[in-house]
Amino acid sequence: MTDAFSSNSEAVLQRSVNVSTIAAGSYGGHLVELYQIVETCHFVTSHQFKKVTLQFPDKLLCDAVPVSAEIEKETKAKIFVLGDTFCCVDEVAAEHVGADCIMHYGASCLCPSRRLPLLYVFEKRPIDIQQCATAFKELYPDCQINLSNLFSGFLWKFLCDMYANVVVSILKADGADLIQDSFLGSDNLDLHDGVNIKFGRQFCVKEGQSIDDYSMFYIGQEGLTLTNFMMAWNHCAFSTFNPETSTGQMKRYYVIERAKDAGVVGILVGTLGVANYLTIIEQLKDIIHKAGKKSYMFAMGKINVPKLANFLEIDVYVLVACPENSLLDSSEFYRPVVTPFEMELACNNHREWTGVYATDFRDLLPGMSFIALIVNGAC
């Protein structure tokens, strides 16, 4: 007798699903262009990689099957899609399948990776350059203002004759390859200017100036990346242009909370791939102990409210993760979740609030500073 509420189980197992290799993607665009298939295939074939792992964020995971099928067809390499959807590169999972390299798609914290060859692939979405330029001019009528232009090499080329003091950010992934605008050459870089490297971005600011002397124009949707920049460069005025809505606006970030005193601290390990994460964990354990507190360490993958609610003896958590994942909204959590910087402010009497916020825990390590690195030399 057939159950009216279910189909035959064998029919489900034998059912075939037709997947068109390259069609319209999650944003309605052509996947070959959106995911830069030609460039990624060249990366694989030029290095003769045989096993390739692809890592997608949650919102792009729906395109993983057609993208991997096209790359496999063009390169003859064996393709694996990683289950980890964090912005940090999961080199450990890639090594489990004996991968020769990793290709990371979408937004990334651009933290250094060391174990495997790595290629960052950013979505090449369409943008209305004319509307972006119009918004830029409305937000910055003064053509002499110092401006740092995030993610917008094309805009610099469009406005460079009018604005003399615009500096373009160039992606600089330590230990990795990446695909970015090829026309951004030495014309935008003055070899006598200061090289400013922060969060995987490189700026060549004018000689005698720092990044704090510039305003920031950010192109992209609001999210953790923008929040991270605004907290780290909180002396800079920010404005944004959203390509989805074609709107520009000024932004401010007012509130930076300090870590509260606590008797028992939970150290949340939110990364296994960011360089020096073990060092900052030991440093946190040391300052927590010297402040007369107890600490416990937790490694639990993706953090959520039910997981942390199981440990009622913990007064506050400190999250060790990449700069973007460190900025966790803990308003719904039973206990607050703070960054390593906030925990050091609470525990270390030698750390004083100066108005500069460090979202990258590596800035807390000995020999580092809380401001962007300014060095002299060629870009």
Rank of each mutant, 00 (worst) to 15 (best):
E257C: 06
G248Y: 08
N242W: 06
I256G: 06
T227H: 07
T227Q: 07
E244M: 12
P243S: 11
I256C: 10
A259D: 08
R252A: 15
M231T: 04
T245S: 15
M230S: 01
M231Y: 06
H235N: 07
E244V: 14
R252C: 07
K251S: 00
T227A: 09
K251Y: 02
A262Y: 04
A262I: 05
T247Y: 04
M231S: 09
T247C: 10
I256Q: 09
D261N: 14
A237G: 08
T247S: 11
A262P: 03
S246W: 05
F229Y: 14
N234Y: 00
T247F: 11
N228Y: 04
F241P: 05
T227I: 13
Y254K: 01
N242I: 07
A259G: 15
N242F: 09
T227L: 11
K251E: 03
A262G: 12
G248V: 14
V255W: 03
Y253L: 05
P243Q: 09
E244W: 11
N228P: 06
Q249M: 12
W233L: 14
V255Q: 05
S239Q: 05
T240D: 05
W233T: 02
T240N: 06
F241S: 02
G248M: 12
Y254H: 01
N242E: 12
I256K: 10
A262Q: 06
T245G: 03
L226F: 15
Q249R: 07
E257H: 13
K251G: 01
N242V: 09
T247K: 12
M250Q: 14
P243E: 12
A232D: 04
W233P: 03
Y254V: 01
V255Y: 11
N228H: 04
A232Q: 03
K260P: 11
K251H: 05
L226P: 04
S246T: 05
V255A: 13
C236T: 02
W233H: 14
T245K: 13
S246A: 14
T225Q: 06
I256P: 04
N242G: 06
C236D: 04
R258L: 13
S239M: 04
C236F: 10
T240E: 08
A237I: 08
E257S: 13
R252V: 11
T227S: 10
P243D: 13
A262F: 05
S246Q: 14
A237F: 07
P243I: 06
E257D: 13
F241E: 05
A232S: 10
L226A: 03
N242D: 15
N228I: 06
I256V: 11
F241K: 08
W233D: 08
E257L: 12
E257F: 14
G248D: 13
A237P: 05
Y254P: 00
Y254S: 02
A237K: 15
A259M: 12
